[in-house]
Design a protein around this nucleic acid. Structure first.
Lengths: 342, 342
DNA sequence: CATTAGCACTCACTAGTATAGAGTGCTAAC
DNA sequence: GTTAGCACTCTATACTAGTGAGTGCTAATG
C-alpha cells in the first residue's frame, strides 16, 4: 500500500488532471498544493508512482497523467466524500415538477437532469415491462372490424395494440375471451407468458376458436412488443466539450455506439447488482469506450431492482461528485416513479 | 438566363464538388468532363459565373465552389432526374417488414431508412394527436383507488393515464361519467377540446360532481399530453463523416439544435404545403444550420397532410437522389401507416 | 538518510523560411 | 470567340531553429 505522502501526491495529480485535462509536473504540484515538500522530492515520489503504475508520461519530458490503475485506486480509496447541496436537491425536484407529466417522461427527464448536472452523457435504462405482472386485459371496440387490446400491469403500465377481427365477431365473443384469458393470466409475470401458456388457454375457449387465434396473436404481440427495454440518453453533446474528444473519429465511435440501443442495454446490464459500479477505461467491454469511464447505479421500486442509471464520460471525470449524484438519484427515483404513476 | 455552356460548366462544378468536397479548377473540369473546350475558355466562363454569383473562390488561387445561389439554380433548373431502383424499393419494404411491429415504430424506422440511404441526418415529424378526433373514452379500474383513463381516437391511437379517484367511487359512477363525456365529445378534434368545453359538460354530470373534477383533470391531461408532436431522428452520426464538419464546434452547434425537439418541430413546420421543399444554407432560419441544406417533404394519410420527413446535411448534398427518395418515401408512408395501424 | 538545490537533457510546441503545386487572370496569337 | 503561354497568388508542406516545461541524476544539506 502507498504511504500517506504518495497518496496525497497521487490525489493531487488526479484532482488536477480531472479539472484541467493537462499533464501535471512536480513544480505545479508544489506550487498549487501545500504539501510542504519541494518539487525534487515530489519528482522522486512521482517516479515511484510511475513505477507502480499509478501514473504515466506521454513522453519523457511531459508531466504525469493518471493511469487506469491510478483512477481505480482513486475511486476505491482516495475519493474525498462529496455531498449534494440543498440547492441541487431543489433543482432536481423542481425539474421533475415542471417537466414531468406522466410516468414515461420520468426517464427521459432523469437523463436530462443527470447530464445537465454532471456535464456528461447520461443513460437511463427504463424498467422492462416483462418484469411487471399481468393484471388484466380488455378489448375495446374501435369500429366494425377493429378492436384495441389493452393490457394492464400491476404497476399501472398500459400496453395497447389495434387488431382486425374476423367479421362477425361480437362484443360478447370478445368479452368471453377476455374473461378466460384474464382468469388464466392474472398475477403472472409478463415474461412467463409464453406461446405454450397461451396455447393451453385455448382449450378453455374452444367455443370461440374462430376469433381466438387472431386475439391470441394480438395479445402475444401486445405482451412481447415492449419487453424491449428502453434506454434514454441525455447530453450526448457534452462529449464534444471535452478536450480529449476534439478528435472527430473518437467521437464518431462513441456516437455510433450510442445509436445502438441493444448495445446500450447490454452495457447497462453489465452491472445488475445493487449500488454503484465504476468501470474505468479498458475495464469497459466495448472497445469504443475504452477511453471512457462509466458510473452506473441501479434503482429500485418496491424493493426490487428495476433499472439502471449511468454516466458516461472521459476517464478524467469527477468521480466523487457523480457518484454522489447517482446515489441520490437512484434512491430518489423509486419515490418519483411512485408519485408520477400515482 | 445562363447560356447552355455556362449551365453545363456550372453543373459540372456542382456535381464535382458534391462528390469530392474539393474546390474545382478549370483544368480539372476540362479533363474530367468532356465539354470540348479548353481550360482557358472554362476560366473565362467561370469568371462570368463568379461575377453572377453562382460560384465563389476561397482565395485568389483556389478552384471554385458553388455558392448558395448556385445550388439554388442547380436545384431549380439543372438537376438531372434520378430514379429509385427496384433494389432500393425492395430494401425499403423489406426493412419495414422486418423492423416494424407497431405504428409508433414506423416513424423511427423511416428515419433510420432515410438516413441509411442518403448518408445524412433524417428527421421525421410524426402526426400530432391533436389533429385526430375523439372517438370515445373508457375508465378501466386498476385497483381500489386507481383507475386508468383510456382515450381512443379515430385513427386508432390510444392515450392512457392513471388517476387516483376519491374513495367510494364505484364503477357505475365512472361509467356514468364516461357516457356523458363520450356523448359530448365524440367526433370532435382533440385540439378543439378546451377546458371551457369540459366545463360545459359538467352541468350534465352534476349528480356525480364529486368525482367529476378528478376525472376531468385526468381526461384533459390524457388529451393534451401528447399534443406535443414527436420528431424522430436518424443517422445523426453521418454528419461526422462529412469533411466540412471535421470541426467539432460546427458539429456541436448542430447537435445542440437536434436535442431541442421544439426547435425541430418548428423547423419541419416551416414547410407545411404539399410536395418537396429545399432550403439551402442561409435560407435556413436557424443560424446553427446555415452551412446545411434541408430537403423536406410532407406526407399524407387519407388525403390530409399529417407530417413531414426531411433530410439535413451539408449544402453539398446529393439533391437529386435525396429528393427522389423523399418523394418515394412520402408517397409510400401513408400506405405503410395504414398497413401497420390496421 | 531523507530532502533539496542545481544542472544537463529531452521533447513538444511555435515561429519563421523555403519550396512545390494548383489555380488564376491577362495578353497575344490563332 | 478560342486558346496557348506566362507571370502571379496563395495554400500546404517540410524543414529549421528557439523556447519552455518538465524530467532524472548528482551532490550538498540539515
Amino acid at each position: 500500500m502507498l504511504d500517506e505522502r504518495k497518496r496525497k501526491i497521487l490525489q493531487a495529480i488526479i484532482n488536477d488532471y480531472i479539472s484541467t485535462a493537462e499533464p501535471i509536473g512536480s513544480r505545479t504540484i508544489a506550487r498549487k498544493y501545500d504539501l510542504g515538500i519541494s518539487p525534487a522530492t515530489i519528482r522522486n515520489e512521482m517516479a515511484d508512482l510511475e513505477l507502480l503504475g499509478y501514473i504515466e508520461q506521454l513522453h519523457t519530458s511531459s508531466g504525469r497523467i493518471p493511469s487506469a490503475k491510478g483512477y481505480r485506486l482513486y475511486v476505491d480509496a482516495l475519493l474525498s466524500p462529496e455531498t449534494i447541496t440543498e440547492k441541487e436537491i431543489n433543482l432536481i425536484s423542481n425539474w421533475y415538477d415542471v417537466k414531468v407529466r406522466r410516468v414515461e417522461e420520468v426517464f427521459q427527464e432523469t437523463a436530462k437532469i443527470i447530464s445537465r448536472m454532471t456535464k456528461n452523457i447520461s443513460l437511463v435504462l427504463a424498467p422492462q415491462l416483462s418484469q411487471a405482472t399481468f393484471r388484466y386485459l380488455q378489448f375495446l371496440p374501435l369500429d366494425e372490424s377493429r378492436v384495441i387490446v389493452v393490457v394492464m400491469t400491476d404497476s399501472g403500465f398500459v400496453e395497447n395494440k389495434v387488431i382486425v377481427m374476423p367479421s362477425g365477431t361480437t362484443v360478447e365473443d370478445l368479452q368471453r375471451i377476455a374473461l378466460v384469458v384474464n382468469k388464466h393470466l392474472a398475477g403472472q409475470a409478463l415474461d412467463s407468458i409464453k406461446p405454450s401458456v397461451l396455447r393451453r388457454i385455448k382449450a378453455d375457449v374452444l367455443a370461440n376458436s374462430r376469433f381466438f387465434d387472431v386475439a391470441m396473436e394480438a395479445i402475444s404481440q401486445a405482451l412481447t412488443v415492449d419487453k424491449k427495454e428502453r434506454v434514454y440518453l441525455g447530453g450526448t453533446t457534452q462529449l464534444l466539450n471535452q478536450p480529449e474528444f476534439r478528435d472527430i473519429d473518437k467521437v464518431k465511435n462513441i456516437f455510433l455506439m450510442l445509436e445502438e440501443e441493444q448495445l446500450l442495454c447490454d452495457l447497462l446490464h453489465a452491472h445488475d447488482g445493487e449500488g454503484i459500479a465504476v468501470t474505468i477505461g479498458q475495464e469497459n467491454k466495448y472497445s469504443g469506450i475504452q477511453e471512457c469511464s462509466m458510473i452506473s447505479a441501479t434503482y429500485k421500486l418496491d424493493g426490487q431492482i428495476i433499472g439502471t442509471i449511468a454516466v458516461l464520460g472521459p476517464t478524467r471525470m469527477e468521480y466523487g461528485k457523480i457518484m454522489t449524484l447517482l446515489d441520490f438519484m437512484n434512491s430518489n427515483l423509486g419515490q418519483i416513479l411512485k408519485k408520477y404513476k400515482l
